[in-house]
Each structure stands twice: as C-alpha cells, then as structure tokens.
C-alpha cells in the first residue's frame, strides 16, 4: 500500500499534524446551510472540508410503488448518488452497487430516530447528492440528511451526525480527508444521535485491533459535538 503512494503523500503525519494542518482528533471545517431548495419540503447544503453534499426531503407523501406501502408506519426512501462531476474521474450516473449500499445504510442510520409511526401509509423521500467527494461522503450525507429532515418538520428523536475515524501511518485520526482515506490503512464511519450518543451506523473498511477500536469509538464520542453544534446553529439561524 505504502509503496504506491505518490511522493506528496509519503508521510501523512508530520510532527503530530496532518497534511492539512489538523491535529489527529480534529474535524474538518463545517459549513451548513438550511432551506437551499425552495421546491423541497426540507433541504440542507453541507460542506465538510472539500466534501459537499446537497440533501432534500420530499414528503410525507403518497407511497409509490403502492405494494411497498406500510399500513402502520411511513417508509423512508433514501437515494444517495454521486454526481458525475463529483470526483476527478467521471462517475457513471445511475444506481450502482456502492450507491445502493450507502443508500441502505444511510436509511438505517436515519430511520431509527424518526417517528415513522406518525405517518402511516406514507413515504418520506430523502435525496442525497454528492456534489464534490473528498472522503467521508456517507458520513457527510447523514449529517446533511438529518438537518434536511428537521427542516421539513418531520418528528425526530434527535439529530444525527456522522464522521469517520481511521488509521493513517499507524495512528488513529478523526475525519479522514481524500488522500488520508486513499493511502491510510483503515476507515470507520460512525453515526451518532445527539441526545445519548447512540450509534446508528458503524462500518469498517480495513483492520483495527480491539484496543484501537475502543479508542476510536472514544475519539468520535468526544469530538463529534462540533458537528451537532453546526447543525443546531444552521437551523437556529434559518429561523432567526
């Protein structure tokens, strides 16, 4: 792995600082905007570092196709898509194995906080479009999706924010960026609720030892608060 690295990325950590100047347990700068799509019931635009995501909520509305309708609760439909221009190489539009998987895990991450039983027979459609990808797209999409759902007035137990923790050059680091994700060893996206810090998504790509895993969870729990604050601030500012 290390041998394929370009010279620029030979060392990802220099003097306990990462290449973009962050410390190991620092998040990338966050910017969230609410209500960017007037035609949607709820929407949010988020920038975490160079990752940019647009989230839109339509609904609750009629469920289609009808055979998937649930008599007792609403159905959350999540569509995650990387736009063709989001990476250096063109992404083929349309569903793929990867985008289907991420749509599914994102749905599970958000479904658990929504009071779906308040809207029987209906559907809530959440669209997550990755405008620019620079690692951590699913985590960023979940953070944006939660804000868009809150903006749409959908009852939720709490907000959800997500970030990734990974291993680069043998050290644990929070919120990996593009090169760190590409040339690092491990990447573990985690989504948490704002009230109790319950985990609603946890995936892992790569290896962690048991100790490293516990430590990684601890890092996320301690450092995820700025994301919730950014979400709250964006929503509060919108209503001011």
């Amino acid at each position: 792995m290390g041998s394929d690295r370009p010279k620029k990325y030979e060392k990802l950590i220099i003097n306990n600082k990462r290449l973009d100047g962050r410390t190991l347990d620092e998040l990338r700068p966050v910017k969230i905007e609410v209500g960017v799509i007037p035609s949607a019931d709820g929407s949010a635009y988020i920038e975490i570092g160079n990752t940019k995501v647009l989230a839109a909520v339509h609904g609750p509305k009629e469920m289609f196709p009808k055979h998937q309708m649930n008599e007792n609760r609403a159905v959350l439909n999540v569509r995650y898509a990387m736009l063709p221009f989001s990476t250096t190489e063109r992404v083929r539009p349309g569903p793929s194995r990867r985008s289907n998987e991420i749509s599914k895990v994102t749905r599970h991450a958000l479904e658990s906080v929504i009071f779906l039983e308040e809207f029987p027979r209906l559907a809530i459609n959440l669209t997550l479009d990755i405008i620019q990808a620079d690692a951590g797209t699913r985590a960023t999409a979940i953070t944006a999706g939660a804000v868009a759902l809150a903006h749409a007035g959908i009852p939720m137990k709490s907000l959800v924010a997500a970030t990734a923790v990974g291993k680069i050059d043998g050290k644990l680091a929070l919120d990996l960026n593009g090169p760190e994700d590409n040339f690092g060893e491990t990447d573990m996206p985690i989504a948490m609720t704002s009230t109790d810090k319950n985990i609603t998504l946890l995936q892992m790509d790569g290896d962690f030892t048991k100790e490293e895993f516990k430590k990684a969870l601890g890092i996320v729990k301690n450092s995820i608060e700025p994301l919730f604050e950014a979400q709250r601030k964006a929503l509060q500012d919108y209503y001011k």
């Binding site: 019931d41 709820g42 609904g59 609750p60 009071f115 809150a150 903006h151 749409a152 007035g153 959908i154 009852p155 939720m156 137990k157 709490s158 009230t195 929503l235 209503y239």
Partner: peptide, 24 residues
Amino acid sequence: IYSKLSGILKNRDHVISVIPLAGK
C-alpha cells in the same frame, strides 16, 4: 422531556409543547 420537532417552545399549565415551524 425532549423536543421532536423544530419549533417554538410553549409551556402552559404544566404541559410542555412545541409548536412546529414546518411540516405537513
């Protein structure tokens, strides 16, 4: 007691409620 909506907090006669700012 937690809020489940984004809205305005009301407290009347020991009933806490949130008047939503959006929603269907």
